[in-house]
C-alpha cells in the first residue's frame, strides 16, 4: 500500500442547523481510484466543495500530503495539487476550447505583467508551452476537441464533449488528486464506457489519483479500487464495490427499507 495522499478526519459542516456532513472520516492513497456513491442529497458535492476549498468545514481536518487544507482559498487548494470538475458542467462558455484549457494552467505558470508587456522570449516560450500542454491534454480525448475545434467557443460543444472538456481543464492544472463530480452523467452507454476507460488511463498514463462521485454503478464497478457510500452526511460503508453494493444499509439507503422490515 502506498502513501496516503488525502486524509480527512472527523469532518463536519453545518448550514444553519442542517448537518450536511457529520464526522466524516475518509482517506485516499496515492494512485487509488475511489468511487463515492450515495443517494441524492447525501452530501457528496458538499464533500467535494469542502476538499476544493469552496466551503470551509465547521470542524475536522483535511490533510493533503500531510498538510492541512483548512482555510485555504480554492485557488490555493488547486495550486497545492487538487483539481475538480463540476456536477453541472461549468465551462467558460465564451472562451475557446483551447483557452479553457490554457487558463487552467494559470497557477502552474508565472510570467507576470512586465514580461507580457514586453513580450520577452521567456514569455513567448511559456505561452508556447502552455499551448502545447493544452493541446496534449485535449488530445487525450481523441480528435474531438482538437484541430478546428481548438478555436471554437466552448458553448458549441455537445453535452458529452463539455464533460470531456471540463475533465481536460481539470487535468491541465497538473493536479495530483483529481476530483470528478459525476463524469459520465448524461452520456450514452458507449460514451460512458469509453470515458470509464479513459479514467483508468488518467491513472495509468497521467499518474493522477482520482476521487469520483458517480451514480452509474457500471462505471463505479469497472474503475474503482474502493467505494465509499455516503448518506445523510455520514459514511455508510466502504470497501470494494462488491462489499459496498451488497451492504444491506447501502441497499436500504438507495431503495428504501423492504416492506416486511418496516415496523
Amino acid at each position: 500500500m502506498s502513501e496516503r495522499i488525502l486524509d480527512i478526519n472527523n469532518l463536519s459542516v453545518t448550514f444553519g442547523g442542517l448537518h450536511a456532513l457529520k464526522d466524516l472520516n475518509f482517506h485516499v492513497d496515492e494512485g487509488e481510484i475511489v468511487g463515492v456513491i450515495g443517494p441524492n442529497g447525501a452530501g457528496k458535492t458538499t464533500f467535494f466543495n469542502m476538499i476544493s476549498g469552496m466551503v470551509t468545514p465547521s470542524s475536522g481536518e483535511i490533510l493533503f500530503e500531510g498538510e492541512s487544507m483548512i482555510g485555504l482559498d480554492p485557488n490555493q487548494v488547486t495550486q497545492r495539487g487538487i483539481s475538480r470538475t463540476f456536477q453541472n458542467v461549468r465551462l467558460f462558455a465564451n472562451m475557446t476550447i483551447v483557452e479553457n484549457v490554457m487558463v487552467a494552467q494559470h497557477c502552474r505558470t508565472k510570467k507576470g505583467i512586465f514580461s507580457s508587456l514586453f513580450n520577452t522570449p521567456g514569455f513567448r516560450k511559456e505561452e508556447a508551452e502552455i499551448r502545447a500542454h493544452a493541446e496534449k491534454v485535449l488530445g487525450f480525448f481523441g480528435t474531438r476537441l482538437i484541430g478546428y475545434r481548438l478555436e471554437q467557443p466552448a458553448s458549441v460543444l455537445s453535452y458529452a464533449n463539455r464533460r470531456r472538456l471540463e475533465i481536460a481543464r481539470a487535468m491541465a492544472t497538473s493536479p495530483r488528486l483529481l476530483l470528478l463530480d459525476e463524469p459520465v452523467a448524461g452520456m450514452n452507454p458507449k460514451e460512458s464506457a469509453e470515458l470509464t476507460d479513459l479514467i483508468g488511463k488518467l491513472r495509468s498514463e497521467w499518474g493522477f489519483t482520482i476521487v469520483m462521485i458517480e451514480h452509474d454503478m457500471n462505471v463505479v464497478r469497472d474503475v474503482s479500487d474502493r467505494v465509499v457510500c455516503l448518506d445523510h452526511g455520514e459514511t455508510l460503508a466502504q470497501g470494494s464495490f462488491e462489499e459496498v453494493s451488497n451492504n444491506p444499509e447501502v441497499i436500504e439507503a438507495y431503495l428504501g427499507r423492504p416492506l416486511e422490515k418496516r415496523a
Binding site: D73, T78, N94, H106
Partner: peptide, 16 residues
C-alpha cells in the same frame, strides 16, 4: 476573461 465568465470556477481552477 475566466473571472468575467465565472468567478468561482476561475478560482477553483487555480486563479487567484
Amino acid at each position: 476573461m475566466a473571472i468575467r465568465e465565472d468567478e468561482s470556477v476561475a478560482e477553483a481552477m487555480g486563479i487567484n
